[in-house]
């Protein structure tokens, strides 16, 4: 039997107006994409605190995806800009701490971009597979707070 493929665990914060609707569209359009992400709907990508991202990592996530509206489209005018600046600083800090900054991914997904959402999920899962599980020496094993995603056959 082939060795089981590493299935990264992803927490996806999706804004209610754009990325969340885009993810819904991917689903209602029956697009196929990997089931590795646990989606958490937030009102705005600008509401996503860096503390939540680190909490996701502490809870065993291998990657964190943040989906917001395209520039100029934010329902709250500028929440996505705030999210972008937060992620920029957070990534700098992650590299200092020895966590690959690629494990945090901020993307713009509109409500009509179901196909883009599905493609991004494919891409992110592949990238995280290449990075491998997130382990820090000296850190306790990731807790089992997030269930490992199971893959449906067919």
């Amino acid at each position: 039997m082939a060795e089981a493929q590493f299935e990264p665990r992803i927490v996806a914060f999706l804004c209610r107006w754009c990325a969340g609707a885009g993810a819904d569209l991917a689903g209602t359009s029956r697009l196929r994409y990997p089931p590795n992400a646990v989606a958490i709907r937030v009102n705005c990508s600008g509401r996503v605190e860096p503390q939540w991202v680190m909490e996701a990592f502490r809870s065993g996530a291998d990657g964190v995806f943040i989906g917001g509206c395209h520039p100029g489209d934010c329902h709250y005018v500028s929440g996505n800009y705030k999210a972008r600046r937060r992620v920029h600083l957070l990534k700098r800090m992650l590299s200092e701490l020895g966590i690959e900054p690629e494990r945090v991914r901020l993307e713009w997904v509109s409500a009509t971009e179901g196909a883009k959402f599905a493609r991004l999920m494919h891409e992110f899962v592949e990238e995280l597979r290449a990075l491998g599980p997130r382990t820090d020496p000296g850190e306790a094993a990731p807790s089992a707070a997030l269930p490992a995603p199971s893959r449906r056959k067919g």
Binding site: G72, R86, L89
Partner: peptide
């Protein structure tokens, strides 16, 4: 530190916000 990242990101500007 993470709380301060939030605060700083909210304050930083380089002209009007946008791409």
């Amino acid at each position: 530190g993470l709380a301060m990242i939030s605060a700083l990101a909210s304050l930083v500007r380089a002209g009007d916000e946008g791409e």
